[in-house]
């Protein structure tokens, strides 16, 4: 029987060792979804663009803030949210979806996680075009703060990878969790400052954002893109989530890695 240590190393080295596998599978998932469509995945850019444009317009009126301030704010928040929520939702069913593969070929579970993550990264990059267009339209030129987006995204992807592994394992065993995650994500969206601003909360209610992981995660990408240097406090929060998720993943792996195939 394989030692736990080697299971963990296998899962981590799979990122490079099986690169050709997960990248091809993820890319083919995109290709499959947009088969026979003329502009393919750019449909996602269009649909997100229309959604952001119209909601941005309406809500800037409702909240009486200028469109130049509200639109980039909403667009960046929404696009990161789409990445987070899509990946977390997909993570719940990814092992179940790949069950024919899992039951025939022995592969590290990371391959299936990375396949989904890669798929959602590709969609995210298509959505990111909207942000780039808005930044160009704002005519602020290049700001050094923009570069902070890179480490933030890297950390967020690491966190998503770990969370996906956790959700994937748990949801394969307890199928109800999938539904709970979906409901939870729907709810948390309204409690996260994406289409509303933190400053509209009274100080007494600031716990709503402070205790909300999604706020800190989104803020780390959003504020550099809006030209502000994010608080160290957000970085520390994200770092803490990554460490926490890594510990949970480690224990779940150690205990249940070999059970996943049996649960399918």
């Amino acid at each position: 029987m394989k030692l736990y240590k080697s299971i963990i190393t296998d899962e981590i080295t799979a990122i490079t060792k099986y690169f050709h596998m997960w990248s091809l599978l993820g890319w083919y998932d995109i290709k499959q979804r947009y088969r026979r469509s003329m502009i393919g995945p750019f449909w996602i850019t269009i649909s997100t663009g229309i959604m952001i444009g119209s909601i941005g317009l309406i809500f800037s009126k409702i909240f009486k803030s200028s469109i130049a301030e509200f639109l980039p704010y909403f667009a960046t928040g929404q696009i990161i949210w789409l990445l987070l929520s899509a990946q977390l939702t997909d993570a719940c069913t990814m092992f179940i979806q790949s069950q024919s593969i899992i039951k025939q070929v022995s592969l590290p579970l990371s391959v299936h996680v990375l396949r989904k993550l890669w798929y959602n990264i590709i969609l995210f990059l298509h959505n990111f075009l909207i942000i780039i267009i808005l930044l160009i339209a704002a005519r602020k030129g290049f700001l050094w703060e923009y570069l902070l987006v890179i480490p933030a995204v890297v950390l967020i992807l690491t966190l998503l990878f770990l969370l996906s592994m956790i959700l994937g394992i748990i949801c394969t065993r307890f199928r109800d969790i999938t539904q709970i995650v979906a409901v939870f994500l729907q709810l948390i969206y309204f409690f996260t400052p994406i289409f509303w601003m933190k400053k509209s909360l009274a100080t007494k209610q600031s716990w709503i954002t402070d205790l909300n992981p999604f706020y800190h995660i989104i803020e780390l990408v959003r504020s550099p893109l809006l030209g502000k240097n994010p608080d160290v406090y957000h970085w520390l929060n994200l770092l803490m989530y990554v460490i926490l998720a890594a510990v949970i993943t480690f224990f779940l792996m150690k205990r249940f890695r070999n059970r996943v195939a049996y649960w399918l």
Binding site: M1, K2, I102, K103, Q104, V105, A261
Partner: peptide
């Protein structure tokens, strides 16, 4: 499947 490494 056990030989294939699917079932531990």
């Amino acid at each position: 499947r056990a030989i294939a490494g699917v079932y531990a």
